[in-house]
Design a protein around this nucleic acid. Sequence first.
DNA 1: AAAGGTTTCAGGGTTTTTCCTGATGAAATT
DNA 2: AATTTCATCAGGAAAAACCCTGAAACCTTT
Lengths: 212, 212
Amino acid sequence: MPTVAIADDHKIFCDSLESLINAFDAFEVIWTVQDGEQAITMLQQKSKLPDILLLDINMPGKNGIEVAEWMFQQNLQVNILALTMENDDNSVIKMLQYGVKGYLLKSVSAEELQNALLSIVKYGYYYTPHVTKQIGNFIAHKNSEPVPVLKDREKELLQYMCTDMSYMEIAEKMFLSESTVDSYRARLFEKFNVKNRIGLLLKANSMGLIRL
Amino acid sequence: MPTVAIADDHKIFCDSLESLINAFDAFEVIWTVQDGEQAITMLQQKSKLPDILLLDINMPGKNGIEVAEWMFQQNLQVNILALTMENDDNSVIKMLQYGVKGYLLKSVSAEELQNALLSIVKYGYYYTPHVTKQIGNFIAHKNSEPVPVLKDREKELLQYMCTDMSYMEIAEKMFLSESTVDSYRARLFEKFNVKNRIGLLLKANSMGLIRL
DNA sequence: AAAGGTTTCAGGGTTTTTCCTGATGAAATT
DNA sequence: AATTTCATCAGGAAAAACCCTGAAACCTTT
């Protein structure tokens, strides 16, 4: 029987998902963990490798993307089925690069989860029309906004710009003159192709460069 | 057998929770819904009143608090067991005012859920020191500022202010003069106790009033 | 009809942000 | 040694954001 493991920070979700999947009869849940570190610990034991890993993206500590990256580097033969609440474009792309075999939103039904599991066992992958469309768009114009390369000082300013501090306050914090802060600000606007501070915050957030 | 209903916007969580609770044998799940409006619709049918309602706080449209408030006003004899994620905060106190019979974080285990359900049936409530302490710590940690009460037009402006639009553009979108937008902006700053637009965005976000 | 609240708006003032054209010295590269 | 790159800064000007004092028009409620 195909084995399944679950990594999600909400214990009650893990537990109930385990109950649901075991009720499918065609699958057996062999372990569940609540964060990325624990997942990696389990995956290091050869005897505990599942056929499919249900992997939540948003977890404290090491998140799903980091786990997927680690597994990719280790070249583990485990099919990852990513689970996420938000429909975050960027994480989809990142996960794909690490060979994730399917991508589910938490708004799916039990039936669709079962289909996904069956499909992964049978065909090795599962992509909903929605994700497939995103992939299509990605390949179509694969210049879907690269994440700008930032120098240290710019990264630092970016963080401060995503608080309610004025530029005067930021200049003090960074031990710079206001002019310098202004130059860096202009460069950030240019690099991110935005027209004001809010736009910068929104785009940096969507690219995962800041945490709100 | 005591009956249970579930309201949570994540379908897969509803489905798996249903599977888990049915597996407890002592309870029967009679319906699940994905948002507050649906919950109220179901609760209006006397024949479908559950003994216990597992109610998620964060839902699109009508959230758990609004449902609890409605039920309180209707004086429904349904025990509410609130469910919440760690990151949705100061709503706890509001829920308590509406006579919620128990409060669980989503980090609890299946076993604790079962205990909670049994306790509510037997004693009418479930507040373990463990959970109470967890919630207490949790509230203490967060800045438990009350969520401001906003009028419709203010809510609308808040959404626009969390985009990169200028006030001129926003005024056009809302069919208002720039002065009016400016007045509303001032009131929002006052209500949220912030000093600029970024601060507003950050606080509104932390209170779950906007989605980035 | 009076009172009170809500929604909308004017005008003018101050501060901050945004945009621009530069420039200096230090460090790295050629 | 000359060139390029980098981090830093000046000063001015336009635009936008922010703050303040009202007030008209339109609701409801008394």
